[in-house]
Design a binder for these strands. Sequence first.
DNA 1: TAAAAATACTCCATAGGTATTTTAT
DNA 2: ATAAAATACCTATGGAGTATTTTTA
Lengths: 98, 98
Amino acid sequence: MDSRHLRYFVAAAEVLSFAKPARDLHMNQSPLSNRIADIELEVDVPLFDRSSKKVALAAADQGFLPQALAAVRAFDSVIRVARTVPRSPIERLGLHAA
Amino acid sequence: MDSRHLRYFVAAAEVLSFAKPARDLHMNQSPLSNRIADIELEVDVPLFDRSSKKVALAAADQGFLPQALAAVRAFDSVIRVARTVPRSPIERLGLHAA
DNA sequence: TAAAAATACTCCATAGGTATTTTAT
DNA sequence: ATAAAATACCTATGGAGTATTTTTA
């Protein structure tokens, strides 16, 4: 599972919409819907109750969203830690930025 | 970043080898090396000191490996939680397995 | 010289885009 | 009638495989 796709799910779950987060993420509604559908297939659990006008969290979602959020945050930490690693001896001594 | 690729990094970091985890993961050494190189490009930090005979964790790795492990475990939790979600009213009541 | 990593390709799966259709409101 | 999600189709990117080269222990 790609962490980016899990972010699609989190974004959709937060606003209960597929079209809106797609706009926010500068992508199309179609692939966002499809990636979320992929996740549902992968974990074999329906995560949303869909209708053409609204989207609701499925009952099976209890527990999934918090875990998804935790995973996304863990990924953010990986990136953040990597970015703040001192690269040079001088940086490692905390003397000044590169 | 794909969680699978982060697992490649963790596997390689744990045994300080690219060829061995590739065998364990039933894949080739080439794509495993390439995906790890991708991660280094993505986070813009060298994670390994390479030579043709050995691989060592780069200095920049301090902090990265633990975070990577945490992220991988968070992903495991996502899958696990999803898999244990009760699907039907009967399951939700804990009466018996599907 | 043997084993491991890098490199150079080839191929295919899939993520994303575009267009359209369906369906609640 | 409108707006949102699903669906169909196309394309291109990139992940994985295979083969080969390089390197160092």
